[in-house]
C-alpha cells in the first residue's frame, strides 16, 4: 500500500518507512527518552504541525505512532519522546546514536493554532501528554505576539517523572516569555517544593475568561475527562476545548480501520478533536 493519488507519476510511498538515523538520545526520565532523529530529506525540511505524529519502525519489531515533540519552526530536526511500555517502544528507547529506524509521516490533523490566535491559551497536560503539546509551546514562543495569556498546567506522577524539566524551569523563569507554567505531581516526599495533587486542582487558580479562551488538553483519557469537567465548571464551552485522543493505530493513513473512534478515524480525523465534535462519546464505554 502506498499513496497513489495526487499527481500521476508523483507517487509517495505512504506505507513504506524511510530509514533514518538517530543523532542524539536525551534521557528524560527512568523509562522515557527523546530521540533526536535526522529527518527524512524533504524539500524545505521535515515540516509538521504541532500535534501531528509519525509512525516509527524498530527493525523487525514493528511500528508505533509517536507524536512529534520538537519545534515545528525547526524542521531540520525531528524529535520524538518515547516511553518504554511495549515491545516496540522498549526497542525504540534502546536506540543509540547512529542507530537506524524507520519513519512514516507526519500524519494527523494537529492542534488548531489558528483558532488559538488572539485568544488566551490554556494548555493542560498529563504525563506523557506533554510531548505532543511541546510543539504548541515552541510555536507560541516563536509567535508570542499572536496569543494573549498562555498558561501551561502539567501533572506528572512524581517529581522524577517530570518531562522536559529544564525547559519547564527555563520557561517559568523567563519573564520575557510571559508564559505561566505550573507543574504538579501526584505524590512526592518532603524534598519537593512544587505542587502536590492533580493537574485539575491547579485550574482553580487559572485565569479562564469564558470568552476568548481556548484549551488544549492531552493526557490519559480519564485525566482528560476530569480536565474537561473542570474546564466546563469554570465556564468554558465544549467548542473551546480540544483534546488529543488515542486508539490502536496500524497504518496511520485511514486504510486499516483500527483507530476508529465513533464515526471518525483517529489517524486522519484526529488525533486532535474539538470536544463538541465527538458528542458524548468521551464518557461512553468501550468506544
Amino acid at each position: 500500500m502506498k499513496l497513489a493519488k495526487s499527481v500521476p507519476g508523483a507517487v509517495t510511498e505512504a506505507m513504506v518507512p524511510e530509514v533514518v538515523r538517530v543523532r542524539q538520545v536525551i534521557r528524560e526520565t527512568g523509562d522515557t527518552i527523546t530521540l533526536n532523529i535526522a529527518p527524512p530529506p524533504r524539500a524545505g525540511g521535515f515540516l509538521f504541525k504541532p500535534g501531528q505524529f509519525n509512525m516509527l519502525y524498530a527493525f523487525g519489531k514493528g511500528e508505533v505512532p509517536i507524536s512529534i515533540s520538537g519545534d515545528p519552526g525547526h524542521p531540520s530536526e525531528l524529535l520524538h519522546t518515547v516511553r518504554a511500555v511495549g515491545l516496540v517502544t522498549s526497542e525504540l528507547t534502546k536506540l543509540q546514536i547512529g542507530d537506524r529506524l524507520g519513519v512514516r509521516g507526519p500524519y494527523g490533523n494537529g492542534w488548531p493554532m489558528e483558532r488559538a490566535k488572539g485568544n488566551d491559551l490554556v494548555i493542560v497536560a498529563g504525563g506523557l501528554g506533554l510531548a505532543p503539546l511541546r510543539p504548541v509551546i515552541y510555536h507560541v514562543l516563536r509567535q508570542r505576539g499572536e496569543f494573549r495569556r498562555v498558561a501551561l498546567y502539567y501533572g506528572a506522577r512524581t517529581p522524577q517523572d517530570i518531562l522536559f524539566l529544564h525547559e519547564l524551569e527555563h520557561w517559568r523563569g523567563r519573564l520575557d516569555l510571559d508564559l505561566s507554567v505550573e507543574v504538579t505531581v501526584d505524590r512526592a516526599g518532603a524534598d519537593w517544593f512544587g505542587h502536590v495533587g492533580v493537574v485539575t486542582a491547579l485550574l482553580a487558580n487559572a485565569y479562564l475568561a469564558t470568552d476568548g479562551t481556548v484549551a488544549f488538553v492531552c493526557g490519559p483519557e480519564i485525566m482528560m475527562r476530569f480536565a474537561v469537567r473542570e474546564l466546563e465548571r469554570y465556564g468554558l464551552a465544549r467548542t473551546q476545548i480540544w483534546l488529543s485522543l488515542e486508539r490502536n493505530m496500524k497504518c496511520g493513513v485511514g486504510l486499516c480501520g483500527h483507530c476508529q473512534y465513533g464515526p471518525t478515524f483517529v489517524c486522519h480525523d484526529g488525533p486532535v478533536y474539538r470536544l463538541d465534535s465527538i458528542g458524548d462519546l468521551l464518557s461512553r464505554r468501550e468506544i
Partner: peptide
Amino acid sequence: CFCTTLSDTTNLTGDQAERVASWDSC
C-alpha cells in the same frame, strides 16, 4: 469489511524483516 492488521516478522537470523497486511476483524 476492509480492516487489515499489519504484522512484522523477522527470519531466524534476524537480519531480514518484512511487514504483511492481513485481514483483521473488529
